[in-house]
């Protein structure tokens, strides 16, 4: 493989950082019904523990292999699921562009997901890493695949909102 063009990589990284900022803003504002808009139609979205990823086990805490499934989850979270009110903050750092190939970019980024419940302290809900594949559609990036691989193996009760 030809060595990556540093300027192209840097531009892609900036673009991805903007994407992360918008994606997290949408989720952290509680606007979960707009969350599916960040995905391509045939997108794959999975949240799974590192122990599964390392062992090649396919299970997902959340497992969606279409944008329609992502939309169903967004609707359920917003309108039908029973859970205690909470706010989330996503912090995304260490964006590394792995490959730029035409309109497709592969990248990885670290994330920290903070959760605050009613009358509770703010806690680290997850520490993990995004493994992303982006595609460019109509001038903007969309996720073709997002694997959220978390280290926080013992989940504090549940994970309700998207990562």
């Amino acid at each position: 493989m030809a060595p990556a063009d540093p300027r192209e990589t840097r531009e892609a990284r900036l673009e991805i950082e903007e994407f992360h900022a918008d994606y997290c803003w949408t989720l952290d504002c509680g606007d979960v019904e707009r969350w599916p808009e960040y995905f391509a139609d045939d997108a794959v979205y999975r949240i799974t523990a590192r122990e599964n990823a390392d062992a090649g086990l396919p299970v997902g805490l959340v497992y969606a292999d279409s944008k329609a499934m992502i939309r169903d989850r967004a609707f359920a979270i917003k309108h039908t699921q029973m859970y205690a009110p909470r706010t989330m903050q996503h912090l995304v750092t260490n964006v590394r562009v792995l490959q730029v190939k035409g309109d497709e970019i592969k990248a990885q980024s670290n994330y920290l997901l903070l959760q605050t419940l009613v009358d509770g302290p703010t806690t680290i809900q997850q520490s993990g890493r995004y493994y992303d594949t982006f595609v460019r559609k109509g001038g903007r990036l969309l996720l073709k695949e997002r694997q959220c691989i978390y280290d926080t193996v013992l989940i504090a009760n549940d994970l309700v909102l998207p990562v």
Partner: peptide, 8 residues
Amino acid sequence: ILGYYRNE
């Protein structure tokens, strides 16, 4: 085996 979840 398809995988594991763990929670408190």
